[in-house]
């Protein structure tokens, strides 16, 4: 039985035929749509490497059945930069060396964007650390990640003030 769903991926509406209802959103992105920026670290919701924005909210794509997402909108790491311009969070990650091996980085960045959108952390480093604790980094880049999130938040706030 093939299930058909409609999915908006990085702003583009796509008709997706699922020959197998077992396909997770993560495996759909990586193995069928070839958007491999989203990483699989544990496949069990325990590391955060697969974080995407699902209908605007940060979510572990490994624990989402694609078949259940008809009509949903997904933003992945590939969908952030606009016109070759890095998203402020992406730039801040580079500036603060908030990455080493880079494998957890797409998930960290998507999680950071989700965190900023949630608006709960403010400029409190402790709330940022707590809010980013769903993304493991084995290289130990947490200090830079926290700095980057705080810096990006300031940049985004400045941008909004200017607008």
């Amino acid at each position: 039985m093939t299930l058909s769903i409609s999915l908006t991926v990085n702003g583009t509406v796509q008709a997706v035929a699922l020959e197998d209802p077992r396909v997770t959103l993560l495996d759909l992105l990586r193995e069928r749509l070839h958007l491999t920026g989203t990483k699989k670290g544990c496949d069990r919701g325990q590391c955060g490497a697969c974080t995407v924005l699902l209908d605007g909210r940060r979510t572990n794509a490994c624990l989402v059945l694609a078949a259940a997402q008809d009509g949903a909108s997904v933003t992945t790491i590939e969908g952030l930069a606009e016109g070759g311009q890095l998203h402020p969070v992406q730039q801040a990650f580079i500036d603060h060396d908030a990455l080493q091996c880079g494998f957890c980085t797409p998930g960290q960045i998507m999680s950071a964007i989700g965190l900023l959108a949630e608006g709960q952390a403010g400029d409190d480093p402790e709330r940022v650390r707590e809010g980013m604790s769903g993304n493991l980094c084995r290289c130990g880049a947490y200090a830079g990640i926290t700095e980057a999130v705080l810096d990006a938040q300031a940049r985004l706030a400045a941008r909004e003030d200017a607008a």
């Binding site: 989203t38 992945t76 790491i77 890095l86 992406q90 580079i94 990455l99 880079g102």
Partner: peptide, 9 residues
Amino acid sequence: DGPLKVTGQ
């Protein structure tokens, strides 16, 4: 390699 890593490339 930062730009490649922060864009998923």
